[in-house]
């Protein structure tokens, strides 16, 4: 177990991450560390830079400054993806619409030729069963509801046997019951694989329900970071406004 590559879960470090889109400063020197096996939630209002941050960690965006490290190695280091297994569950699911559910889930194994075909079919069935979609292999993404698409996306991530899973708004556009199911899936996945999880969300219930630690981000800066109860007690006015905001109908 001395080789970090063999461990289930990786340590993620984000150091002074900066990103501009034109004149707009989206990330202003964001720094934090996610420990191995931890569920770390990045919470914040829409447009605060959460998803952009997630894309930097998985290597889909180039930073203007700062660095992202997985077990001390830069995310852009040669061979990092071969050494550590990373997966991302997109907000929309991002299933390949031209493939069936089964083909989507088995895509990673087939493209990298990691297992024989019979074994791949078994793994697909197993992962779909874990997310409660037994027998959905032949369905096409267009036939699925939003919640089912997200569960297929989680099954697709499970196939990778990830050491780091990034979730981008996993409960957006879902009703509260399905949202709870997704939250439970995230917890179950961590308990089963001990993978590190980084969840981006503006769903307060989800964040406080599953997080080991929470970072509250707004306007590209981290306003509060700590265990859920610590974040709840943060004196920052924007954090308090975000956490206590509620709908109050105007009196007639």
């Amino acid at each position: 177990m001395s080789d970090p590559a063999n461990q289930q879960g990786v340590r993620v470090e984000v150091r002074d991450l900066r990103k501009n889109f034109g004149d707009h400063e989206v990330l202003r020197g964001v720094s934090f560390t996610v420990e191995r096996g931890e569920i770390f939630v990045l919470m914040g209002p829409s447009g605060s830079g959460k998803s952009v941050l997630l894309k930097h960690i998985i290597g889909l965006e180039e930073a203007d400054g700062g660095e992202m490290l997985i077990e001390g190695h830069s995310i852009h280091a040669e061979g990092l993806r071969d050494r550590y297994r990373l997966a991302m569950v997109f907000q929309s699911g991002a299933l390949l619409n031209s493939l069936t559910v089964g083909e989507n889930v088995g895509l990673y194994l087939r493209e990298h030729r990691l297992k024989p075909e019979a074994e791949i079919r078994r793994v697909i069935a197993e992962k779909l069963e874990i997310v409660g979609l037994t027998g959905a292999e032949e369905k096409i993404p267009a036939e699925l509801s939003g919640g089912m698409k997200k569960r297929v996306a989680i099954a697709r991530a499970l196939v990778i046997e990830p050491q780091l899973v990034l979730y981008d708004e996993p409960t957006s556009e879902l009703d509260p019951l399905i949202a709870i199911t997704i939250g439970q899936e995230i917890l179950a996945l961590r308990d089963r694989t001990h993978a590190t999880s980084l969840v981006v969300t503006h769903d307060r219930d989800l964040a406080f329900g599953i997080a080991d630690r929470i970072a509250m981000i707004a306007d590209g800066e981290i306003l509060a970071l700590g265990r859920p109860e610590e974040v709840r007690r943060s004196p920052h006015p924007l954090v308090q406004r975000f956490l206590t905001a509620d709908f109050h109908p105007k009196p007639q």
Binding site: G59, R81, D82, Y108
Partner: peptide, 8 residues
């Protein structure tokens, strides 16, 4: 993006 995250 999903393909890239799967190293495809």
């Amino acid at each position: 993006d999903a393909l890239r995250t799967m190293n495809i």
